[in-house]
Amino acid sequence: MREARKQATRRRVLGAARELFEEVGYESATIREIAGRAGVSVGSVFTGFCSKAHILSEVMQERLGDLYGDLERVAPHLRGSTADRCRSMFAVHYAFEFRRLHLFLAYVAAGFDWRADPDLPAMGANPRLRGMIRDCLAEGVRRGDVRADADLELVVDLLVGVYAWNYRRAAAQPVRPEQLTDLFDRQVGVIFAGLAPG
């Protein structure tokens, strides 16, 4: 009973936070406002979450559940070279994040915040995204278009890092998702040419 009430509070806080972040932006939304909209006390927000960054992280995780569910369904049906499969997976990401671009940029900024709880899932460290890219690369090794001695963890870091860094262009000026997808497609081309068996 007590656990059920805790879960209900948690859901209300996350719902209120998602609405407020979208309406006024992550930076402007305060814990007090989130509590007010959720109809709970500030204190009970802090029993479930340790900071605003923590709430943002949970809001993003909830959203990403849908994205990764779709990607996991799509992944086995991807065709073409390993580079093209990677391009398709990241293109889905760019299109998805552009729907809530400001929220996503706030999430990246918070990802560099070393005061956040180290146990929180950090941007780019999402095990599901990393797992899918790693699987795609391992499949590439089997198919023969990725070198067998390539350090796949390193390639995952490189791809996810380059993918994420491209968003800084969106933080500086308005860009369309296709512009980032085109840029990333070229970057992927170079990285995979460098991974081709010699």
Partner: peptide, 21 residues
Amino acid sequence: RAVMSALWTPGLAERARRRLE
């Protein structure tokens, strides 16, 4: 980390961002 985080933060003035970019 502080510089990287600031580059993503909408609170950083546009002029400052251009200089850092």
